[in-house]
């Protein structure tokens, strides 16, 4: 029986473009973060607060990814930072080519940190490299402390875990120590920040950490 041996990665096309993106970002001296989480964990709020708290320290550009509407780009636009919206029209994740095309609109803007807000989904975005430096996974206290165990691939691939909505802890059964233990059992290297985008608690530490990475990539 004739056999053709090929040994090719299924997502090679995406990976090639992701690497081109990475080279481009590197040449612009950008620190690039891919924000991933389930819907409603506070990704856009974290983008807003990161912009607000970073004023005078470093400049941010944003690529917003959503299944539908440009509501998030409008929210970010109020902060007077360069922003471009990707609408996936049903697509459950961003792909490297979408980021490449979106970035063309930001290329002449002056900023140090690019935040790519992925589509809210803890499964599919983990398979697609966009050319980012790191993945930041956001998990809110309302989602339960066992969530990392349910989505191990995403927590394994991320470098930073932001636990959001800590202001709600007194009202919830979520055990934050258990949540951190579960996340670290999947990825011991995870850098964890506990924040509230509502009250601002914990955000200064997060901004300081980003600042250490600016200009290093």
């Amino acid at each position: 029986m004739p056999v053709i041996t090929i040994e090719r990665k299924v997502l090679e096309k995406n990976d090639v473009i992701a690497n081109q993106n990475r080279e481009k970002f590197k040449s612009k001296n950008l620190f690039v973060m891919n924000f991933v989480s389930s819907p409603g964990s506070g990704k856009t709020s974290l983008v807003e607060k990161t912009i607000e708290f970073s004023r005078g320290k470093f400049k941010i550009g944003v690529i917003e990814g959503d299944v539908q509407t440009n509501l998030d780009a409008e929210r970010v636009n109020k902060f007077n930072v360069p922003v471009v919206q990707i609408v996936t029209n049903g697509g459950c994740h961003l792909e490297a080519n979408l980021v490449r095309d979106a970035y063309k609109n930001l290329e002449n803007e002056d900023f140090d940190v690019l935040i790519i807000e992925n589509v809210g989904n803890l499964v599919c975005p983990s398979s697609y490299d966009l050319g980012e430096d790191i993945k930041v996974v956001i998990l809110s206290t309302t989602e339960g402390d066992d969530k990392p165990l349910k989505y191990p691939a995403m927590f394994r691939n991320a470098s930073v875990l932001i636990i959001n909505k800590i202001d709600l802890l007194p009202y919830l059964d979520c055990n934050i120590e258990e949540m951190k233990k579960n996340a670290l059992s999947i990825n011991q290297q995870l850098k964890i920040f506990e924040v509230s985008c509502k009250t601002g608690e914990g955000l200064s530490e997060w901004i300081e950490w980003i600042q250490k990475n600016v200009g290093k990539s």
Partner: peptide
């Protein structure tokens, strides 16, 4: 554990 690769295509005789 992260593999997603095509290895072979088998054709009919």
């Amino acid at each position: 554990g992260k593999e997603l690769e095509i290895t072979e295509i088998e054709l009919e005789d």
